[in-house]
Simulated scan of single mutants.
Amino acid sequence: MSSIDSQTTYLKYREYSDLLKVILYSSQSVLGAVPLIYHLKHNNQNIIFIQTGTMGGNVIHYLISNGPPSKKFIELKRLTGDYTFVDKIGTDGMSLYIPILELEKSNLDFP
Rank of each mutant, 00 (worst) to 15 (best):
D5N: 08
I100K: 12
P99C: 00
K41F: 06
P69M: 01
Y13W: 15
S27G: 07
D109L: 15
T54L: 02
V34N: 02
L24P: 02
H42C: 08
S65M: 04
S17T: 12
L20F: 11
L24W: 02
V30R: 14
G90D: 01
R78P: 00
L96H: 08
L103W: 13
S70Q: 08
I98Y: 07
I98N: 07
N107A: 14
I74T: 07
K105W: 15
S2A: 01
Y62K: 10
M1S: 12
E104N: 15
I4W: 01
P99H: 03
K105Y: 15
G93K: 11
R78S: 09
H39F: 04
T84I: 01
S95T: 06
I89Q: 14
L108N: 11
T8E: 03
Y10T: 03
F49K: 04
G56P: 00
D18G: 09
Y25C: 10
K41I: 12
T80R: 05
R78C: 03
L108F: 15
A33T: 02
F73W: 14
L76P: 08
I74E: 11
I74A: 13
Y83I: 02
P68V: 03
G93W: 01
T52W: 06
L79F: 11
K71A: 01
K71Y: 01
I89E: 10
N46Q: 09
H42R: 15
D18P: 04
T54G: 14
I98S: 08
P68K: 13
K88M: 08
G90A: 01
H61M: 07
I100Y: 10
I60F: 13
G53W: 04
S106Y: 13
K21G: 09
Y38Q: 09
S6M: 06
R78Q: 12
L20S: 13
Y10K: 05
